[in-house]
Structure formats: C-alpha cells, structure tokens
Design a protein around this nucleic acid. Structure first.
Length: 430
RNA sequence: UCCGGAGUAGCUCAGCGGUAGAGCGAGUGACUGUUAAUCACCAGGUCGGGAGUUCAAAUCUCUCCUCCGGAGCCA
C-alpha cells in the first residue's frame, strides 16, 4: 500500500490520498471544522465539512482532542488560505486513538516543565526543526568522511584508561573491575590510522564534569577523524573544510527549519573559507587589546572565547596552545617546547569551542615521560605505546562536538535542545 | 562548590500578615474559511516539604528539597 507524507504534498495535488498522523490543532464550526494534521514530515490543514465528508467523520469534531491519532482521506488541493499552501478536503476521517488532555499548550511554558515533558515536546515545531537540522549535520559529517576515503572505525564505550583526565570519568562496574565510559575514541583512532590511513569514529561521549552551563552535556556526540602522515596544518585544512561543508549542507537542505527557528541566516551565509588561523599568542594579544587581564599560559574562559570569536564572521582556529594546559598525547612544537601542536576551532557569535585537535606525539620517549608526569604508568598505556614501537608515524586528528555545532547553527541559547533526550548534571529523565 | 532568582489551579503568573485570584488550557453551547479564532456559560487549590513566630501565615523566620541564571570546573 502506498504511503503518503505531508512534506511531499505538492506531488499529490488532485489525488485522493490517506494521511496518517496526529491532531496538532483544530477549529470547530457548526458545519465545517479545520484540523491541522501532523505526520512527522509536516503539517497539513484538513477541511471537514458536512457536504464532503460522511456524517460519522464530520461528527468526530465532538470527540477529537489535541494529539489524537487520526487518518484522513481526501483530495489534496492548492489553497492559499491554508497555512502550508495546500489542504486536504476530507471525505473520511478515522480516529485511531483518542488522546487524553495534552499537557503542552501553544502558550508559554517554563523550561523545567518542557524538559520533564521532553518526550512530548519533541512533537512541537521548534524542536522538530532542531532535530531535523541535527540529522542533516550528522549526515553531512558522515558524507564528508565517507566521500574522502575515510574508514569508519567504531571505538569502545567501555574503556580502562582516561583520555582526557581522570576527574571527568563516569565509573562503572565491569564484572568486578573498574571501567569508565569513554571520553574520547582518539587513542583507538590512532591505532586505526596506522591500520587504515584515514579513519573516523562517531559516537556518544561521556564527561562527568560538574558543569552546569549552556554549553555542557554529560553525554554528547563527537566525531573524531584521525589521519596518518598528517601534520597540524593539514589537520586544520580538514577541520575547516568539514565545518564549511556542514554549514553549506544545512543552508541547502534546511532553510525552512532555520526560518522556523528565526535564525539569522545571513550569519551562516557569512561563513566563508578560508577560516582565520591565529596562534594562541595572537589570541592573547586580542584579549589584551580588548582590555582583558590575561597572561600567556592561562586557558581561555567562556567570555574570552567569545571576545576572540567575535573578531571574525567565520569560525576561527587558534593553534599552538601552551603545552602545560594541553593533553599528554599532543606533539610539542619543534620550534618552541612550551607550545603544543594543538588547535581549537571557535564558532562565531560566542558559541565557543566546537573542535579540539592536535598533531599527536610520535616520539615514544617524550610520550612516556609525559605519561609518568601525569602520574600514570607505561603499563597503563602499553598498547597505545605499541603504536610508536611498531612504525611510528606523524599523525593528527580532532574531535568535533555535534551538539555545540547544532547549537551554533540553530542559534540556540542552550545546548539542551540540540539532542532528543539531553543528559545534564541535573537531568537523567526522560 | 559559590553567588543570585524562583517554587500558588493542567500551564504561565499576580497576591506578600486578615474570605485563594487572573489569563490560557480543559468541559458545555453558538458560528462555513479558521491560522495562538471569537462570544457565552462552567469546573478546577494540602499556596514545594518540615519546623517556628503570631489571635491569625501563601505572605515573616529557620531548615530541607527541586528548578532556573551566572561563576568556577571542563580537549
């Protein structure tokens, strides 16, 4: 049996079709009633009159409630008076299940109420638009790597050792042993780069940070490419190219969703490659010129990132951070030991860091001494060190946080709306 | 963890020592072009929990809980 979806309504003009969905809203009259039918792909106005529909269908106006599941059969026609430009003149309306009084109305609600009803809130226009843009962003990421000879390498979620510092690990019991939820697939990605040349991993990531801010989730999605025979400049080339591609795909395929969100699209259209690349040292100068008391060696706070990113319409890449504030696996700058071959990409409009990456340390002795300096042992990282023992190679990669990108592209005030069921420090349900 | 704000009807809020309120939503009725419809009628409450002050507490005090905003923390 053929299925019909509201987003393809223009292909159905003049045809009799059956639409299946839920009652989004309605207006009831004495001899006519209007039903806005939502089917997940769009909203269609259904017109039910005493003359065109059978009596049983017409009388359903007395029992139908918001979010009642219904099937409507009728002819699709163009209609300027309809919100979507098309409507269906119903010959038959069938109720599948009457909905109880729906808690989410079209008026204002507080964020706590909406988050408690997240499973229902997803049905509303705005959330629908965000999740569809998220989908397009994720598809763009996958297409980007798949089309450029990267191999997908799925990395484990249960891990034995930390990648990004032990303070933010979620600990779990693994048959009597301690295991941790992954903070990053990177170390495994490096093994993959030695096997396949160019790989990416893409999956959920967990950070037990006690951060309660508009840009932190405890569970978020990250894509991490890792590339053999790739230095920091090449790494930045890929990061820039990927983000530019994501933005262009959203602009091409999700314009109406951006409009639903009232996103200033000109800000996205202003994103142009090449993206600016500045060193950490230059970034410090920008801060100082803007009156911020900042010393070389400190890490940027949220406000600092905003000042830096506001200098540019495109995302800006800051490279060569002080090695002291960066992870053990990052290669030192051959020209300055105090700097790591690291890069962060900061999104425009104050959305902060969307990418963090680096050229990796390929010298085994340097790695071992830093592992020890962090209080860990060679044993803890024995398989990782094997990657340097058996054909060490220059390589680089980065991680892109999907929700930060969704938040920026959608122009959201808070990251909690970027994922269907957000996990934050204060929310585990629904 | 710190600072600030808030918990009153299904929802959003007003009331701030003296009879528990409004708008929206729900319900009932009218309407053949509605877009957050309009109009009329109507139901709806352990004022976050506990303790205290007072003749009297939604209102003042203490305490706990929850949420929100910011800071810190955080590739």
């Amino acid at each position: 049996m053929k299925e019909y979806f509201i987003q393809h309504a223009k292909d159905y003009v003049g045809k009799t079709v059956t639409l299946k969905g839920w009652a989004y809203s309605f207006r009831k009259g004495g001899k006519i009633w209007f039903l806005q039918l939502r089917d997940g792909t769009g909203v269609m106005q259904c017109v039910v009159t005493k003359f065109d529909a059978d009596e049983a269908s017409f009388e359903l106006k007395n029992v139908i409630t918001q979010e009642t599941s219904v099937m409507v059969t009728g002819v699709i026609k163009e209609e300027p008076r309809s919100p979507g430009g098309y409507e269906i003149l119903a010959s038959k309306v069938e109720v599948v299940a009457i909905a109880e009084e729906y808690p989410i109305s079209k008026k204002e609600h507080g964020i706590d109420f909406l988050m408690n009803n997240r499973h229902l809130w997803l049905r509303s226009k705005r959330q629908h638009a965000i999740i569809r843009i998220r989908h397009t962003i994720i598809k763009a990421i996958r297409d980007y790597f798949d089309d450029r000879d990267f191999t997908l390498l799925d990395t484990p979620i249960f891990q034995q050792a930390a990648t990004e510092g032990t303070a933010t690990l979620f600990e779990t019991d693994y048959f009597g042993e301690k295991a941790y939820l992954t903070q990053s697939g990177q170390l495994y990605g490096e093994a993959g780069a030695a096997a396949f040349g160019k790989i990416y991993c893409f999956g959920p990531t967990f950070r037990a940070e006690k951060s309660s801010t508009r840009r932190h989730l405890t569970e978020f999605w990250m894509v991490e490419p890792e590339m053999a025979y790739c230095d920091l400049d090449m790494d930045m080339d890929v990061a820039e190219d990927l983000v530019f591609y994501i933005v262009s795909q959203v602009l091409e395929h999700r314009r109406s969703e951006l409009e639903t969100l009232e996103r200033d699209i000109s800000k996205l259209e202003a994103v142009q490659s090449p993206f600016p690349r500045i060193s950490y040292t230059d970034a410090v100068k920008i801060l100082q010129e803007n009156g911020v008391e900042f010393e070389w060696g400190d890490d940027f706070g949220g406000g600092d990132e905003t000042i830096i990113s506001n200098q540019f319409p495109s995302p800006v890449m800051v490279h060569r951070y002080p090695s002291a504030i960066k992870a053990f696996y990052m290669k030192r700058d051959p020209e300055n030991e105090k700097q790591a071959m690291a890069l962060d990409m900061l999104a425009p409009e104050g959305y902060g860091e969307i990418i963090g990456g680096s050229q990796r340390e390929d010298d085994i002795d340097a790695l071992i001494s830093r592992i020890k300096a962090d209080g860990a042992t060679e044993e803890d990282y024995s398989w990782y060190l094997d990657l340097r023992r058996y054909g060490s190679f220059p390589h680089s990669g980065f991680g892109l946080g999907v929700e930060r990108v969704v938040s920026w592209i959608c122009g959201l005030k808070h990251i909690r709306e970027t994922i269907p069921f957000p996990r934050t420090i204060s929310r585990l349900n629904p």
